[in-house]
């Protein structure tokens, strides 16, 4: 049941990704071609999702936009994961720097992620690179925290202590022993970050602060669609559904992976120490911030 869920979610994502990456070869319409005579046409055999106010094919745009959303989501998830893992490893392992790093992370997490991203985009300008930078900056503290608390747990395991006593170098310990043991929270958190980045990018574009309006993204499409909602609701419906399907698949994937990789969680019947439970409640509680 659990595995089936993961496979379905992953399957949807892969199909969508492949479809959008190869879209230029198979799409019957160009996503950016303006056809002034074909404005605001409804759903038809010719235009499956109708056309927008420039007469562009909404199906083509929805598929092409997936490319941009996936790229941003992946880039943010990847950079935030690499950064968060490095900082989290160091912070969890070296108690001395831990205090300073954690205060910085706490400070960064005092900003709601979307607001931090907004302020950064306002300062840097709304290019693709800047949006990736802003969203990475807004999301990596979360990653760091999750990885740090995982490292803290792993560190208490006997084989790590054994490695320390046999004089293994810290680099080897961190990357050969600790990292593989914290890989599951990393994978899970990376999936959630991916989902959050897609939502955040859409929100930024919707507010008119995202990528240039000439590039099709789901957020841009919804922003433009807003004024036609009463006469051309399909413009708002399809990109919205695309976001929901993608983000939902990612969340199901992350949720499923968490259950799969950490079978003790929630299903556990063993008494946990109060202290660990509290900690968990706190780290879990900041896991997802909603845009």
């Amino acid at each position: 049941m659990l595995k089936k869920r993961i496979w379905i979610a992953a399957g949807i994502l892969i199909v969508l990704l492949l479809a959008s990456v190869t879209s230029s070869w198979w799409l019957p319409h160009s996503p950016t071609h303006i056809e002034a005579t074909q404005r605001l046409h409804g759903i038809s055999a010719h235009n499956w999702f109708g056309t927008d106010h420039f007469g562009r094919d909404v199906f083509a745009r929805t598929i092409a936009a997936a490319k941009v959303s996936f790229f941003i989501g992946m880039a943010v998830a990847f950079i935030a994961t690499v950064l968060g893992t490095l900082v989290g490893l160091v912070s969890g392992y070296y108690r001395k720097v831990d205090f300073i790093i954690m205060r910085i992370i706490d400070g960064m997490m005092a900003f709601p992620a979307l607001l931090l991203a907004l302020a950064l985009v306002a300062a840097l300008g709304g290019s693709m690179t800047n949006i990736i930078i802003a969203l990475t900056f807004a999301n990596f503290p979360q990653m760091t925290r999750v990885i740090r608390s995982a490292v803290l747990k792993v560190k208490q395991l006997q084989f790590i202590e054994a490695a320390v006593t046999t004089g293994t170098g810290p680099f080897t310990i961190l990357f050969r022993y600790v990292l593989p043991n914290v890989s599951s929270p990393i994978i899970v958190q990376a999936t959630f970050t991916f989902a959050k980045a897609i939502l955040a990018e859409a929100a930024l574009s919707f507010l008119g602060l995202g990528i240039s309006p000439s590039i099709p993204t789901w957020g841009n499409m919804l922003q433009e669609a807003q004024e036609y909602i009463t006469i051309a609701p399909w413009l708002s419906i399809f990109p919205g559904i695309a976001i929901v399907i993608t983000v939902l698949s990612l969340n199901i994937l992350g949720d499923g992976l968490r259950d799969l990789l950490d079978p003790h969680r929630t299903k556990t019947m063993q008494p946990l120490k109060r202290k660990t439970q509290l900690k968990r409640a706190k780290t879990e509680s900041t896991k997802q911030e909603v845009i």
Binding site: S236, V244, N251
Partner: peptide, 22 residues
Amino acid sequence: SLLGVSIPAFWLAILLVLIFAV
């Protein structure tokens, strides 16, 4: 609950306004 965190607030807003206000 997963669906809840996967819906963009602005999209939900557009839809609810269309239904319950317009």
